[in-house]
Nucleic acid binder design. Structure first.
Lengths: 126, 126
DNA sequence: TCGAATTGCGTACTATACTACGCAGTAGCA
DNA sequence: TGCTACTGCGTAGTATAGTACGCAATTCGA
């Protein structure tokens, strides 16, 4: 049985869909034209606009490009957030995501950073 | 006729997977523990780490939360190319701009970072 | 030496993202 | 009136995201 998207998710999908539709209309494009630009099928564009599916990252990027809308705009509509501690997190995030560092080095720098900042480190969730 | 992910995508998936694995190890979590935190199945975590699938936005958010990594970090690994210097710059930039650190602490961390990366820091600023 | 617990993963399955095809409605235009 | 072309969408199918179950390889304590 279809595990329908949880009620919460569904309204987000509908919001995102409405947004896509309004941007498409603003750009004076038909669903087919947008489909062609994004290399998607036109019924799928229709489905997205009605909030029937959660698009993948790949699709979101294509849509953002075709509609001249920054990707974050759409992403933020799927699952809330934008965390308030962004400043503090950004240094730890940079360290964690840095391909120049080995895991041990990351751990070391995070430890040091933690010590410097009094261990008031991130708390993205909860 | 499985439409395998285009070679380009595949390497991005592998990069993302490796990143997830390294973050999980840093956090000293098993795949099962991470799976529980993110409400995913453990084989799926395994598959993600090996770059076998492109996770949805929902999954990326869950992973970011559980691993204390901002979502954009992972999203950026899926989309576009990433300027090789960009990462290096971003870590030093993050440290330099971090309001939580004193000047002396910044200097210390930059020194350490320099040592770790062999001092190949680029001439972005200064 | 033996469980018992924990690790990562193969695999077959289910759920959902995405496409191919085609239909009904509308707008022009002869 | 009777095309012709365009619009959005229903629907059935295929491809991929994500799960349930279980196995082989550690590790550890008795």
């Amino acid at each position: 049985m279809s595990k329908a998207p949880s009620a919460n998710d569904r309204s987000q999908l509908i919001d995102l869909g409405s947004f896509i539709r309004s941007q498409r209309n603003l750009a004076k494009l038909s669903q087919r034209e947008l489909a062609k630009l994004t290399k998607l099928s036109d019924p799928y564009v229709s489905q997205l606009e009605r909030g029937l599916h959660e698009p993948s990252v790949r699709v979101i990027r294509a849509l953002g490009k075709a509609l001249n809308v920054p990707v974050e705009t759409m992403l933020s509509m799927l699952g809330e957030e934008v965390d308030p501690d962004a400043e503090v997190i950004s240094t730890t995030a940079a360290i964690k995501g840095d391909p120049e560092l080995t895991d041990a080095q990351k751990a070391a720098m995070l430890e040091i950073y933690d010590g410097f900042t009094g261990g008031k480190r991130s708390r993205t969730s909860e």
